[in-house]
Simulated assay, not measured.
Amino acid sequence: MAGEIPDLEAQERTGTGKGAARQARRDGMVPGIVFGGDKEPLPINIPFNKLLTMLRKGRFKSTLFNMKVEGHEDVRVICRDVQRHVVKDLPTHVDFLRLRRTTKINLFINVEVSGEEECPGLKAGGVLTLVRPEVELVVTAADIPESITVDISGLEIGDSATIANVKLPAGAKPTIDRDFVIAQISAPSGLASQSDDEDEDVAADEVPTTEMDPPNGEQADD
């Protein structure tokens, strides 16, 4: 995925059970657990304010993190569940899964565009619209791409590039089964308005002649 994998700092939580979890919340922390990866589960605490900020940014459950816990090796994790207060809707517990190199996960991958200088549609004054700046893919934890590239070098005005036109990394596939548009070249707004006006003029010229107004100056039969 584009950029570096973000760090997520946590503290090892001493003690388990409801008592330790309640104490963590009183201390301004959110209790959690890191499990999987052929290792023992690790109880953790995460600062409440930092976690809430990340949750509000969105896509927390589809973001890969580099978890840093003092006294333990850094490990790649992905969120598997966030429990919330039934009334306040604030996080009360969070679960993270350690990732093996072969683990399949869903992540949003940034889209980059190539071929803009050669694109005939842009040369003719068209406008590029990146319909999907990110695409959700199923990827292998060991082979997470920084981005995927869509080539628009052959697009004319009115053409679109879909996910079928993108060469995906080995082992990656979209989470959406159908083909979908990633980028398109549209006519400039001025040209589009002119085209609409011309369509209206043509429609006006094609109004059919009524029986009360026959063609060629002929009189209608009584």
Rank of each mutant, 00 (worst) to 15 (best):
A172W: 06
A142Y: 06
D151Y: 06
T162H: 02
V150P: 03
L130R: 10
G158P: 04
R98C: 08
E146H: 14
V131R: 12
G121T: 06
E136M: 15
V166K: 02
P169L: 05
D143I: 04
E117G: 01
C119G: 03
G126N: 05
R101A: 15
G121Y: 03
K104Q: 14
E146Q: 15
I157N: 01
G115N: 10
R178H: 11
G171S: 09
V111S: 05
I148S: 06
Q184E: 13
S147K: 15
T103Y: 02
K167P: 00
L107A: 12
V135A: 06
K173F: 11
V138Q: 13
T140D: 12
V138C: 11
F180M: 01
A142K: 14
I163E: 06
G125M: 07
N106I: 09
P145I: 10
K123D: 07
A183W: 00
D159V: 07
A170L: 12
N106W: 11
I152Y: 02
E117Q: 14
E136S: 13
P169V: 07
A142H: 12
T103D: 15
S186Y: 02
T175M: 05
V127Y: 04
T103L: 01
N110H: 15
G171T: 08
G158A: 04
P169W: 04
N110I: 07
K104G: 03
K104P: 02
E136F: 03
N165W: 00
K167D: 13
C119K: 02
I109K: 08
K167M: 12
E116F: 05
N165V: 00
L168I: 08
C119P: 02
K173R: 15
K173M: 11
E117K: 15
E118D: 14
I148N: 05
F96D: 10
F180C: 01
V166F: 04
T140N: 12
K123W: 05
D143N: 15
G121A: 09
K167S: 14
P120Q: 06
T102K: 13
K167W: 01
K167N: 13
G115K: 08
A183L: 03
R178Y: 02
D95S: 09
K123I: 09
D95Y: 07
H93Q: 14
L128C: 07
D177H: 08
D95R: 07
T102A: 14
G154C: 01
P133L: 01
L137D: 07
D143T: 14
S114W: 01
I148Y: 07
A183S: 06
A183P: 02
T103R: 04
V111W: 05
R178C: 00
P174I: 09
A164S: 15
V150H: 06
V150R: 05
P174D: 09
F108W: 13
P133A: 02
L168T: 07
V166G: 02
R100Q: 13
S186H: 12
L122N: 04
G115E: 08
S114E: 15
G171P: 08
S153Q: 07
K167V: 14
G158L: 04
G158Q: 07
V127F: 05
T175L: 05
K173H: 14
N110Y: 11
L137M: 10
I105P: 06
V131W: 10
A183Y: 01
I152V: 14
S153W: 04
V113N: 08
S153M: 04
H93V: 10
T162Q: 01
P145V: 10
V135R: 03
S114P: 00
